[in-house]
Design a protein around this nucleic acid. Structure first.
Lengths: 180, 180
DNA sequence: TATATTATACTCAGCACTGACTATTTGTCA
DNA sequence: TGACAAATAGTCAGTGCTGAGTATAATATA
């Protein structure tokens, strides 16, 4: 999905170089993706070779030279196709929490309970963080984008809330077992 | 998480070789992970070098030779530590559906609506499949494991149901917009 | 004014993962 | 019984990703 992000962001915000793309991603998409800077450079170079991007050199003042990328027509077409096919992508997330229960025969119930309590707190923190980030983003985005931003954030919130719900249920389930 | 799975399965089901591990994963964990066979061989070899596994040769009848792996004491200790730390693992899933909305300015609303309708059907299929798999697994598993199996499956079901709920809500939201 | 810290802009080696391939043996059905 | 599919047991080359490192410029702070 990284080429998709790059093509989208370069169209929305105009020609950019690697570091700027990384900054936009960090500001706007940090909750949704963990792309690292070398990965961005890797894809920029690859996409340029494929003809999806055009590269130009820029030397501002006495700063070191940098490579600015912009989207080509081929890139714009590729983006349209990628985006339209995105929902066909078969994605099954692997939750670390599963393995703890799947192999619970090898852990003391009290250890699982302890871990779960910490996990619950972490989840609550994450949810608060996403809510803050959502409110902040909505304030800084043009009106016509607000519905979409809300849909994207509520998506993630829903999943973390499902995770929280599940963790709380499982904790209760284990505490009953521990008393027995 | 693949080394964790390998260590856990080798302890639960005794010494195995690569292909057998792949079969167990395919039967029991296909909803939760998509590990491929070469990946399993890769980790078996690596873990043997690290001293977590011991390798032995076996030549049954006139079948080609195969390598059987078993867990060492070091492996058992490593497994305990991995498992106990599992919930600290910071995992943020990247949902393909997000990008469609995040870049919705580049798609016709009708295209998004179409994709979403297909997506909804696929989700319903996935949920049915996991439910069947859960019922089937619970029947073939010893009594003391049933609570845990149920917890693991309900975890995944909860997430897919959250996804379904979100997709339905977003679809309605878009259809209202389309009419306007 | 010197000095430390942060921001900018990359490069590279190395690990994790898998598609595609090879090779043998075991059903299986005509 | 001969032919063809399916199961078994791998190998390997190529792709994607990132931690760690390099180098310079701007900014803070003492």
């Amino acid at each position: 999905m990284i080429p998709l992000y790059i093509l989208g962001l370069l169209q929305r915000y105009g020609p950019q170089h690697g570091y700027q793309i990384k900054k936009i991603v960090a500001e706007q998409l940090s909750d949704f993706t963990r792309i690292k800077l070398p990965t961005i450079y890797y894809h920029l170079e690859k996409m340029q070779k494929e003809g999806l991007l055009a590269a130009g050199s820029e030397k501002p003042g006495n700063r070191p030279e940098k490579t600015v990328y912009s989207v080509t027509d081929k890139g714009r077409k590729a983006f349209q196709i990628m985006l339209a096919n995105m929902l066909e992508y078969d994605y099954r997330p692997t939750f670390p929490a599963d393995s703890v229960f799947y192999f619970s025969e090898y852990l003391e119930t009290s250890t699982i309970v302890e871990s779960l309590v910490t996990y619950l707190e972490k989840l609550k923190g994450t949810i608060r963080h996403i809510e803050d980030h959502r409110d902040d983003t909505i304030q800084h985005v043009p009106d016509e984008m607000q519905t979409m931003v809300d849909i994207v954030f509520s998506h993630h919130l829903l999943h973390y809330q499902a995770e929280l719900e599940w963790a709380e249920k499982s904790l209760k389930c284990l505490q009953i077992k521990e008393v027995e």
